[in-house]
Amino acid sequence: MSDGVQAQESPRVAQSAQPLLQVDAVRKEYDRSGSVGRFRRAPKERFVAVDDVSLTISAGETLSVVGESGSGKSTLGRMILGLTEPTSGSILFDGDDITHRDARRRRELTREIQVVFQDPYSSLDPRQRIEDIIREPLDIHGIGTVAERRQRVADVMEQVALSERMRRFFPHQLSGGLRQRVCIASALVVRPKLIVADEPVSALDVSVQAQILDLFEEVQRRTSVALLFISHDLGVVRQISDRVAVMRRGEIVETGPIDDVFERPTHPYTRSLLSAIPPADPDLPFQPVFYDEAVS
């Protein structure tokens, strides 16, 4: 932490002109009809999962995308990861257009853009040892010699506070929190520029959640990796983000620095979301304001 002037943005955020990731008017439509009734020629019905979403992330920054189920936040993450293609709009990464990527480009990009998913139980190969899981991205990309790979695995394991003796463990021998550390280690091992984390702490107990959030912050202090943090949990988002984008029904309804959005929400949906969280203090008032006429 540098002394003196308090920067308005987080100090680790690079103040370069060009953002690391620039998502521009991205839209994703799904065909709603036809998939079930294959013999029925229903009129084409389109479902808009993500509707003209634009956002930027700078190096070292944490942008959270917060929203309820069906808001399109995960679809947005999947488009950035290249797991699904946008219907229209563009995605620029480091100045390159990565909206449509072929197999080779997709593979190259997995070095730069990594992912951490919600469920550390299903995202780890149960038959591989921890060190093999973490090393696998290095093998795939042919990074370093055998000795260098081993050293790199040891380094990231230390970075995520996995003890050395766990190298030879299998995932089932680890708790949920430790497994999520393994997932983070295997994301970090290739030194990505961006990590997309989709609900990475939602499956964990609160005390473990807090540790994993601290870990993300620590990792960012050390590596200046950018983080796109997808979550439904406003408390978690408040703790980890520099900026936040609030999504509802495929659209970003409000975006801004985290404290501004949480302290002075301008969109009624954001206000409704914030008011819906029961305060963990019996003396604080709980007066949820509902945005929709029918909330459930």
Binding site: S207, A210, G235, V237, R238, F262, L274, I277, P279, A280
Partner: peptide, 24 residues
């Protein structure tokens, strides 16, 4: 105490929380 501390709070310094501090 540990459980309470680990609870992520969106309203760490919300006006409502501040108001309440004064009242208490």
């Amino acid at each position: 105490r540990q459980l309470l501390a680990a609870q992520p709070s969106h309203a760490a310094s919300s006006p409502a929380a501040l108001q309440n501090e004064v009242v208490r």
